[in-house]
Structures are given as C-alpha cells and as structure tokens.
C-alpha cells in the first residue's frame, strides 16, 4: 500500500492577520510559513493508516524552493520520501494537473490524502480537481478511516450535518478534516533524519505536462473593513438582553 500526502506551505494561522494586501497580491509573504494545518491532519491520517494496514507514506507539494521545509515537516512526522514540484504560478487547476502528473509518474500510489482546504487560498478545489484529473473517486470531509484493503477503503464522512459511512475503490483521493486525528509531534531523532533526506525537485517539463494557465483572476486585493469595535459593557444580563432586542438580533 502506498500513501501519498499532498501538502501546501501556508502562513502560520497566528500570523494571518499580519498579511498585507500587497503581499497577498505578489505572493511574497513576510510572515512565518508552516504546513497548512488541515494538511497536518492528512499527514497524521496517512501515517496512522500505514501503521494500521501496512505500507509506506510519501509527501508531495507544489511550490517554491522554500516549500521544501513543509516536506521536511512531513518527513519528520514519519513519511518515508518527499517530492517537490517547483512551480509558483499554477492556480488550483494547475496544481491539480501537476500533482496528477507526478502521481501517474510514480505509478504505485493507492491512496492520496489531502487537507480539506488551505488557510491561504481557501477554495478547497484541489482535492476534487486532482481526483478528476486522475479519474479516481474522491471522498471529501473524511473524519475516520474504518478499513483499508488492497483495492478498497471504507471511511466515515461528514457532509453538512450528516455522517455517512462509505466504501470506494482504491486508488482514490481523500480530503480529511481535523476530527481524523491530531498530528503527532516529531521526535528529535526523526527531525534530524528528515533534515538529511534528499528531496527530488521536479518541474512541469520533467513531468511532461503544461500546467493550464490560471482561469481565476484576482484583483483589488484589500484588507476587510475593520469591525466597528466599540464594546458597550453591561453590569447585568437583563440590560444586555434589552440591547440585543433593540438591535433586532433576537
């Protein structure tokens, strides 16, 4: 069984409010970058599955040279190998196309794990697009892995307010939510080992594909208007309820 986790290097969530409009427009961020938090749950889930059902886990990303740090975090958690696809221009469809080409080139991937969305792009489009490109089924909102066999997987999905137990064939793409498990802390020894792993870098031409030109254009980057933040304090609950009734929000 070969598991592959797709991760993205994204801003540390504590520093997101510091992102400036011009930085978002250029993609040149000055804040701390880490593994997208949703992807940490994907890493945990894939590694846990490999421990429960056997097999090995790889980690892959699309990004600039610095995105190698995100791959090293995956290696430190327990992935055996890592791949960087160097590209900073691709949008969601481009990223999916590049990832699919790499997965086809690997040829032996059974299950792809991703986080449900990224904390920077926020669209949640890539896992579905990746599955469409590969022609594999996709299960989103995965909260629990129930069983993995050589050619199938059973999982619990959260869809709106409902929970579904579903079975599909492998190979498949899964996008996971936090409920699937908290990411493990890498040990010192694993961090040291991860630092020494040689990480191959591929480009679109190595993969023999042209990433499609972006089809979503973003313009007029700006900070949202600040909340009108003048808190009115009350001494008792009754006055507060009166104020909420006057606001017509109750």
């Amino acid at each position: 069984m070969k598991y592959l986790v797709c991760v993205k290097q994204a801003p540390d969530t504590a520093e997101l409010p510091k992102v400036k409009a011009e930085e978002a427009a250029s993609g040149e961020l000055s804040i701390q970058l880490v593994v997208n938090p949703w992807d940490e749950h994907a890493l945990e889930s894939a590694i846990q599955s490999s421990e429960d059902y056997g097999g090995s886990v790889g980690v892959i990303t699309v990004g600039g040279e610095k995105a190698i740090d995100a791959l090293r975090s995956g290696l430190a958690m327990g992935c055996a190998e890592a791949t960087l696809i160097e590209d900073t221009e691709a949008d969601a469809w481009g990223v999916a196309t590049l990832l699919a080409a790499a997965i086809e080139q690997m040829g032996d991937v059974d299950l792809v794990f991703t986080g449900q969305l990224t904390v920077d792009g926020n669209s949640g489009m890539v896992p579905i697009a990746l599955a469409r490109k590969l022609g594999w089924p996709v299960l989103t909102g995965v909260a629990k892995i129930i069983e993995v066999t050589d050619d199938s997987i059973v999982v619990e999905r959260v869809v709106g307010e409902a929970r579904l137990t579903v079975k599909t064939q492998a190979p498949a793409v899964l996008s996971v939510i936090k409920e699937i498990g908290e990411p493990r802390y890498p040990t010192f020894i694993k961090i040291r080992k991860a630092a020494r792993v040689k990480i191959p870098t591929l480009t679109a031409s190595d993969l023999g594909v042209d990433a499609p030109a972006p089809v979503v254009q973003m313009d007029n980057y700006r900070k949202p208007p600040a909340r009108d933040a003048h808190v009115q304090l009350f001494d008792n609950a009754s006055d507060l309820v009166d104020a909420l009734l006057a606001e017509k929000v109750l």
Partner: peptide
C-alpha cells in the same frame, strides 16, 4: 467578492473559460 487568507484579505475575482 472572495475572502482569502482566512478572511484577512478580500479580492474581486473573475473567471475565464
């Protein structure tokens, strides 16, 4: 009107295709 960076940046987005 799209929020990105978890609501910390807003953009006007259009599509081609």
């Amino acid at each position: 009107l799209r929020p990105i960076y978890s609501g910390n940046i807003l953009v006007d987005a259009t599509t081609s295709g």
